[in-house]
């Protein structure tokens, strides 16, 4: 089942920034990195649930604003030595629009 949902035009997410998507099941953070790759993670840090969307993005990582864990954007996994994982969803850009697919976490 493909449940791609349109989020917003790509330019509404700043480079190295994010956008929060509110769903009935909690917030999703949609990130755009310096190379315009798009990632979607549950907006909850594996440490103590901090809002990852508010962190600093670099390359394929985001640093949580609360206690500085780094989380891998493409896997949702915390960067060693920290250990933990947040849900990760599929995301893509099509004709300048950002889509995410919440059907199942990857």
């Amino acid at each position: 089942m493909s449940e791609w949902m349109r989020v917003c035009p790509l330019e509404e997410i700043p480079k190295l920034g994010s956008r929060v998507v509110q769903t009935g099941n909690g917030d999703i953070a949609v990130f755009r990195n310096g190379a315009d790759a798009i990632f979607a993670l549950r907006d909850q840090c594996p440490h103590k649930g901090g809002p990852l969307s508010q962190g600093i993005v670099s390359d394929r990582k985001v640093t949580c604003p609360l206690h500085g864990w780094a989380v891998q954007l493409d896997s949702g996994e915390a960067v060693a030595p920290d250990c933990g994982c947040t849900n990760r969803y599929r995301a893509r850009v099509d004709k300048g629009e950002v889509y995410i697919n919440l059907s199942e976490p990857k």
Binding site: E3, M5, V20, V21
Partner: peptide
């Protein structure tokens, strides 16, 4: 924030409620 509607997700529609 961008808002998705809960029914929308479960219903499998391609469109978001913007």
């Amino acid at each position: 924030p961008v808002r998705f509607n809960r029914n929308n997700i479960q219903g499998g529609s391609h469109e978001r409620v913007d």
